[in-house]
Amino acid sequence: MRKWLMEKRKKQQLTQEEVSIKAHINRAYYSQIESGTRNPSMEVAKNIATVLNFSPFAFFMNENTEPFHVALKNAPIVIAHCDLDLRYTWLYNPHADFEQDASIGKTDLELDDNEGTRALMELKKEVIETKRQIHRKICFPLSTGEICYSVFAEPLLNQQGQITGIVTASMEMID
């Protein structure tokens, strides 16, 4: 079950029928995608993601055969996409304190309100305002102790060059 997908749809007060019409797919096919019994093609994932305003990569973030996953699964790197409301639309390899699927659609403050998450939110706002890449060290109080990340954030652009969100790559700083 793709609970995160159902929550995204319900948050926008859309039915499965409405999403399937807007995404140009059969309602039964959409229902199977939402239930997790079928995976969409990249084209269908893009259509659904456009309708519900999230990254199409969210459908594929648990694919164990992808070279991306194999290369980064044990690396201290977190990669994420957020929309212009700073809500996660895709999250890969978060700290063990956070669940990938449960984080989709939420802001950093909704996940945990602390000095680190507030600094991360400010960084993302600054990226939107300046339309430029920003790099900053941000420390978070986590269950394993304070962990500092080197956070790279930049605007996420659509094909027309308009900002649709922010992409971040955060690498744990190890002494």
Results as ranks from 00 to 15, higher is better:
Y92W: 13
D108A: 14
I134M: 06
F98Q: 01
G145K: 10
S35A: 08
E63T: 13
I21G: 00
L156T: 05
G36K: 06
E99M: 03
N93T: 12
I138E: 01
E99Y: 01
E7N: 14
R118K: 14
T168R: 00
T50N: 15
P76A: 10
V19A: 02
R136V: 10
I166L: 04
L109P: 01
L91S: 03
N62Y: 04
E122I: 10
V44P: 01
N47S: 15
T144N: 09
D85K: 13
S150F: 13
I79N: 06
I128M: 07
F57M: 15
N64D: 14
S143C: 08
Q159I: 08
A153F: 06
G105Y: 12
S35G: 03
H24R: 15
A23S: 02
E110A: 04
H24K: 15
P155D: 09
V44T: 14
R38D: 11
L120Q: 11
I21N: 01
A28L: 11
A71T: 10
P56G: 04
E43K: 07
A102S: 11
Y88P: 03
A49Y: 04
E154K: 11
Y88W: 12
Y30R: 04
E7A: 12
H81G: 04
V19W: 02
W90A: 14
S41H: 04
P94V: 03
A45S: 08
M1T: 14
A169Y: 05
D108C: 09
N74D: 14
V127T: 07
R38S: 15
R2Y: 03
V51M: 10
E154C: 08
N53G: 01
A119P: 03
A28D: 07
A58G: 09
L111Y: 05
K11S: 14
E122V: 09
T164D: 06
I166Y: 01
T89M: 02
L123P: 06
H81N: 11
M6C: 04
T130G: 10
V127K: 11
V127C: 07
E99S: 15
T117W: 05
R2L: 07
Q159C: 02
V19N: 01
C139L: 07
A75K: 14
E18A: 12
Y149L: 14
M6N: 09
T164I: 15
D112A: 13
P155Y: 05
D175A: 06
M173C: 12
N158K: 09
E17R: 10
H24E: 15
M6P: 00
I138S: 02
K46R: 15
I166H: 01
K125S: 05
S55R: 04
I174W: 06
K125H: 10
A96K: 13
P67C: 09
G36W: 10
L156I: 06
K3Q: 14
N53A: 01
N62V: 00
E43W: 00
I147V: 15
I104C: 03
L86D: 02
S150L: 12
E17D: 09
H135N: 13
S150I: 00
P94C: 02
T164C: 11
I77V: 15
